[in-house]
């Protein structure tokens, strides 16, 4: 076991993937000599060279578009989009090309492209650097969407994403980059189980009275709230979704059938978000087990505000606790 930050764990996962498969190529802005603005690719340029850790022109559509061509020739490009808010120039390539190519080609083309996106807020950043655009991509058939919440998952899931034959949008919660945990760098890696491995949700805390569903940056928040709830006498289960597409709704439904209450928390605006999908699933499949309405705690329906407002804008312990208290009141 090695104690690593999430940034270092993802870095270690990238290194493993590059060692395992010479076709893995990293590309993005400032990922080479600089090591990426969050240093997630630190040292990889030195060890693998500029041909495999490529600084690209400042053109996000170009990054994803050329990656598609490279994947068609058998490479496994791992693109870094420097910040969440800068993914939109690549939106057309991702949604009209990357997501659809396998389908359009009737399976004759596979595009194992991974797009890494540092996402979400809470780091005091300026505009366009704190957004949670995952809903755009979960709504797009043909893409897989994943978000690790811990260093262990950062290490394992990035390798799984790269090994997966489908395109994966890999959202890295940037506020969690500096969280530390023990990571088993020698854990065996089963390429054949990569896709199923990263598609499963994880129950990170058992409970009986209510379920909090979280992913990425809000998993830690959910655990804090569960702790406070326990001190107040309630037993709250916490689920880390890990994968947003596919959604492991069965794990959620099973949990809600047990607890009868469900609160979903994410930083993206609640309206039309991942939480809405979960609420619909729970209503369809666990309706008669529900003791309370399904609640969502998320960002408000507005552009991400100035960072001096973000602690009021983002889901907080108090807001999440309030929602848990409201479902427990039923």
């Amino acid at each position: 076991m090695t104690t690593l930050t999430m940034a270092a764990a993802i870095n270690a996962g990238l290194r493993k993937a590059m060692e395992r498969d010479p076709k893995v190529v990293l590309m993005g802005e400032d990922i080479g000599v600089l090591g990426g603005v969050f240093r997630v690719t630190d040292g990889l340029h030195k060890d693998f060279g500029g041909d495999r850790v490529r600084d690209t022109p400042l053109a996000e559509s170009g990054i994803v578009g050329t990656a598609i061509g490279m994947a068609m020739r058998g490479y496994r490009p791992v693109c870094e989009i420097q910040f969440d808010g800068f993914i939109f120039p690549a939106f057309s390539q991702i949604t009209t090309q990357l997501a659809k190519m396998h389908y359009r080609a009737q399976g004759n083309i596979t595009l194992p492209v991974t797009i890494r996106v540092p996402f979400a807020g809470n780091i005091g950043a300026i505009e366009h650097h704190s957004e949670s655009p995952e809903g755009y991509f979960t709504h797009t058939p043909g893409l897989r969407v994943a978000a690790p919440a811990t260093p262990e998952d950062g290490f394992t899931m990035i390798q799984q994403a790269i090994a997966c034959p489908d395109p994966v949008i890999f959202f890295e919660p940037k506020a969690r980059y500096w969280d530390k945990a023990d990571v088993d760098l020698d854990a065996p890696f089963d390429e054949a189980k990569a896709t199923t491995g990263m598609s499963r949700a994880r129950i990170v805390r058992q409970g009986d009275d209510a379920t909090i569903v979280a992913y990425g940056p809000t998993v830690r928040l959910a655990l804090q709230v569960a702790q406070v709830s326990e001190e107040e006498g309630s037993s709250v289960e916490v689920i880390d979704l890990r994968s947003l597409s596919p959604l492991d709704h069965q794990t959620v439904v099973r949990s809600v059938k047990k607890t009868g209450r469900c609160v979903i928390v994410h930083e993206a605006p609640s309206a039309f978000g991942v939480g809405a999908e979960i609420a619909a699933r729970v209503t369809e499949e666990a309706f008669f087990h529900l003791e309370a309405p399904v609640l969502r705690v998320g960002g408000f329906f507005m552009p991400y505000p100035g960072s001096k407002f973000e602690h009021d804008y983002l889901p907080s312990v108090d807001r999440l606790l309030d929602a848990v208290d409201r479902v427990l009141a039923h």
Partner: peptide, 19 residues
């Protein structure tokens, strides 16, 4: 394949050529 989104394939072609 034919690409209907105007210009989108120029990037695929470029990436393919680089590879």
């Amino acid at each position: 394949l034919y690409t209907l989104v105007i210009g989108a394939h120029t990037l695929h072609a470029t990436g393919y050529a680089m590879a």
